[in-house]
């Protein structure tokens, strides 16, 4: 599918007759990258789909107010980031459980999922990533797996670059420790 520029998509969206068409193009253009992020955060494929649908519904409602001084992708990513954090919080509140229980639930989902194709070492890495607090996990995912720049992550999360570097560094150390412990078991 041909990539459309932000300007092209927004111009099409602002014309009454092509509003839905433009939004359909926008969804198709960004759904793959956003799904990869949401799926790593939420793990379960069905929940990931629900979260991603909410992301695009919020984008639909807010696109009129979108300021073009930011990139559309960063803006969508920010909505996705916030939706994932909200979803995980709601999950914890709904289950009335601690962070450990949520990690256990996510890990179980991972182990049972037919949609997880990684080997044992990949599964160990995912389990280690899941032990991170939600926001730190989001930073690690964006930096390590999706290879975004700190400046981009800063625009998405609203956190300073310095704080992000620190958070990422701590996350890497935690994961390395977890992987080392898993190996020695």
């Amino acid at each position: 599918m041909a990539e459309f520029s932000d300007r092209e998509l927004l111009d099409l969206f602002r014309q009454e007759g092509s509003r839905h068409y433009a939004f359909n193009l926008l969804v198709r253009q960004y759904q793959g990258r956003l799904y990869a992020f949401v799926r790593r955060m939420v793990t379960d494929p069905d929940e990931s789909k629900d979260v991603l649908q909410n992301v695009f519904l919020k984008a639909w409602n807010g696109l009129d107010r979108f300021r073009e001084d930011a990139q559309l992708y960063s803006w969508l990513y920010r909505i996705a980031h916030n939706e994932c954090i909200t979803h995980l919080k709601r999950l914890r509140r709904g289950l009335f459980v601690s962070q450990d229980h949520v990690i256990e639930r996510l890990t179980t989902t991972l182990d049972k999922s037919e949609h997880f194709t990684g080997d044992a070492i990949q599964a160990a890495l995912q389990r280690a990533v899941m032990t991170l607090p939600d926001k730190q996990r989001a930073v690690f995912t964006m930096k390590y797996f999706q290879e975004l720049k700190y400046e981009e992550i800063s625009a998405i999360t609203g956190t300073s670059v310095g704080a992000l570097k620190s958070s990422y560094h701590i996350a890497v150390r935690k994961i390395e420790d977890q992987l080392t412990r898993d190996r020695t078991k």
Binding site: Y35, E114, H115, G118, D119, I121, Q126
Partner: peptide, 9 residues
């Protein structure tokens, strides 16, 4: 660890 995406769509 290779940075492949283990989550199948």
């Amino acid at each position: 660890i290779p940075r492949t995406d283990p989550f199948a769509v």
